[in-house]
Design a protein around this nucleic acid. Sequence first.
DNA 1: CGTCACCTTGAATAATTTCAATCGACGTGG
DNA 2: CCACGTCGATTGAAATTATTCAAGGTGACG
Lengths: 250, 250
Amino acid sequence: MGATKQDVGSALARRLGAQLELTPAEMDALDTLEARPRVILRGRAIDGSGQPGFYVLRSGWAASGISLADGRRQIACIHLPGDLLGMLDHTRGAGVDVLSALTDVEVGTIDRGALARLFEAHPRLGALLLLQAHRERLSLNDRLAAVGRTDAKARLAGLILDLASRQRALDPSLGATMPMPLTQEEIGDALGLTAVHVNRMMRQLAEAGLIARGTGASITLCQEDRLAELSGFVDRANAIETDWLPAPRG
Amino acid sequence: MGATKQDVGSALARRLGAQLELTPAEMDALDTLEARPRVILRGRAIDGSGQPGFYVLRSGWAASGISLADGRRQIACIHLPGDLLGMLDHTRGAGVDVLSALTDVEVGTIDRGALARLFEAHPRLGALLLLQAHRERLSLNDRLAAVGRTDAKARLAGLILDLASRQRALDPSLGATMPMPLTQEEIGDALGLTAVHVNRMMRQLAEAGLIARGTGASITLCQEDRLAELSGFVDRANAIETDWLPAPRG
DNA sequence: CGTCACCTTGAATAATTTCAATCGACGTGG
DNA sequence: CCACGTCGATTGAAATTATTCAAGGTGACG
């Protein structure tokens, strides 16, 4: 699960461009935003600098979340390429949000100040970043509802469907089998479960024929409809309300 | 617990102004943003129109969250005056986020388009809204960590401290006793617990002398330090990173 | 004075964690 | 090459935690 080849262009531009037709000037602005790509090995922290920073995930998977006093942690969000990272540390000082690499990852850095210039020069992109932020909030809402109100099996099924949907959005050629690089402990950290219990639920899903576990870090969704029914999963990958945005520039 | 008198000026301007010195032009822009105040009675939905809308909570408490297929719900966020509501429906279409009035509330409406003009005319306010959004994301992270990784008593203690901290930020004169208009069922919906269990935990906290339950919809925090220790609560009401923001206009 | 919403309590049940082992794969140094 | 240590997956049994089910109880309000 190393960093894959995505070395050209801006991952952020690709992400935003998938939702909205960007003007050439907007694309240029996003391209120059993303600088100094850096590779971080699996399991390492992204940005241990102590200073808040903005990053764009260019390849690989990352997790953001909180570490508790007793050493346990809660993963709030599993990030795939194109996600903007590090924003939380800008709301309350560094260290609030713990970013770690779930696979080997490549991140681009966004200079302090460059983002401010983006807001000034391209109001529409600023508003789009706001939308993007609230979209992450929405997916946190979904996660919270799953953790607070559904049992372990449903949570696991929901996570699998969520990751499947998001990976397919990035790579439409994906079929029923897809990468699943998380350890069971990491899955537990995301779902508020122990690794032991994740293991049991995974076995149950496999025994029921809903999923099949590949040998490598992969998984196959055998009966998506039943997974969806089990988890109450609703795919959010549909229309976005963009008609309130400012007019583009350039 | 009716709507209190806060009929002058913009609740949003007050909120943002508490974090940052606003220029007169910025304050004007925020003032004109907030229009058509409307009162909604306790228990009612805010915005059942089916159309996404932006609202500013001017007085009272509101909840945002998700309703599950089986009729249960998960409250994701408890909103106090000054909060911006309705943004989530702009990411994925109406109905994604369920807003309801926890007390009688007064909300102001923000016109579609007015927000776009704000981004164009005042990039700094746009960026500040982005910060605000990520701050809500942070508090969702905290909530998720509580629901996923701590037991019922700790969750309850944490919620009490959170609401205390946020109410004090709005009204510095508040002491140990403060409004607590939520029913135990609503508290359960926020914490991922049943009302029955909330009741038991509340009794335990009261019997241990950590809190005292007032007769009205109020609560007294008797031993905040022990509540904090119990819940691992970290108060996020400190410095905000604003030095990356664009320069103000006006 | 009845009704409704909310709070309270107990007992039985179910879900999840904790504790304790074991196993396989994999890389490392001897 | 092989022993060794580590990490992750796996499984069982006991202990906890929270839910469910079932009854009251209380206060506000028409």
